[in-house]
Design a protein around this nucleic acid. Sequence first.
RNA 1: GGAGAGGUGGCCGAGCUGGCUGAAGGCGCACGCCUGCUAAGCGUGUAAUGGGGUAACUCAUUCGGGGGUUCAAAUCCCCCCCUCUCCGCCA
Length: 425
Amino acid sequence: MLDLKLVQKNPELVREALEKRGSDIDIEVFNSLDQKRKELVQEVETLKAERNRASGEISKRKRSGEDASDLIETMGKVASRVKELDSELGEIEAREREWLVSCPNIPNETTPLGKSEDDNPVLRYWGDKPKLDFKPKEHWELGTALGGLDFERAAKLAGARFAVQFGWAARLERALAAFMLDVQVGEHGHTEVIPPYMVNSTSMFGTGQLPKFAGDSFKLADWDYYLIPTAEVPLTNLYRDEVLEEDMLPVKFCALTPCFRSEAGSYGKDTKGLIRQHQFHKVEMVRFAHPEHSYEDLEEMTANAETILQKLGIHYRVIELCTGDIGFSSAKTYDIEVWLPGQDKYREISSCSNIEDFQARRANIRFKPRDSKKTAFVHTLNGSGLAVGRTFVAVLENFQQADGSLLIPEALKPYMGGIEKVEAP
RNA sequence: GGAGAGGUGGCCGAGCUGGCUGAAGGCGCACGCCUGCUAAGCGUGUAAUGGGGUAACUCAUUCGGGGGUUCAAAUCCCCCCCUCUCCGCCA
């Protein structure tokens, strides 16, 4: 959520930001609502002041035994007018707020201009594509052939966009998750968290999933519970309505959680394999940062995510999302895209964003600067470190062998219970 | 699932037979005084948000959230949320 005052006092800045994003949100709608609001407020407050004065007078007369019926009668009329204006004002304010919470964040000035994902600049590459002297399989083909992946039975249990992992595949998933956590906790100083995997609508609102993206999540019938689409939601909301000490910042959390997404609107996209599932595991990093240092935090967090692929020895590139492709809440986002030989493509495996104070304002997360009496909003950041399911895909596609077997990357061996190579049954 | 208790300012805690109560008292905090040994005492001040004014100041809103009654609601009525205790059930 943007600062109401900013939108009121600097609508041009907001208009510009919306244009850069290619957003269809109209600032004029807000402007006219706000104009009307100001007029109503002025009128109703004048009446209320009059009513309060009269109330005091009535009270005084009553206590001294005087008659006040004339005042009471006049105030009856004022009261009904106040009621009218109040309800009108309430409606305007509700619409104004609706506009405000549907308005995306203002991109940071360093976020590159662009219309779509085609305009996202590549910042850097790490490593090299593996030299395979055979035609690489796609991960679902390999995983199925090796007896680890089963999409048919998953469809029987639940439906499309689910998978069952057996034996080595389940073990590999667990190994990846444990490995990632060990790095993010042990080497990068994150505090490990196990949060609820369901959250209430207030939490979903706090991070920006609601109200605009309600259809993207799973909601439990008859409960105000949503399955978390990412651990960003519970982790960021941990400090909702709290005031942190300046010395605490940055606070660095990470969590391994399942993530649940409806993937509405993605019909026909990535229908095969593990790339786009209703349920997947992700190690998520969330930071509460000092506003003055949040962009350094973004660089560090992105590096934290990259470390995982470097240790695994998998080629990737880092791109920066342009203004037309950046997420609703984000001011600046780096995506890490891993190389998938089977698909012959780079695919997103991590997304690291600085949300600045956009979520902090929604969720009311503040800190107390040492030299000031006023509290200020923190900056929140989040990034995958990494998406476990997609890393599983990357391992399969990058470490497959000509004979159809799969080698386990060095870094994962300690986690694999002695499995070093997976061969067809 | 059943029964009960409660949600008030940074915190604790009165008020809840409706009317100078934005809210006693305490703690904490800030400033000042006093005092020469840890420390204590005394005095004063101390909510947030929005509007107007250079300013002193002033107006409005806020006692979990929403609605209602009334000239007037922290106080009365209705709905919802949350927390706690006891019982039941349960990995």
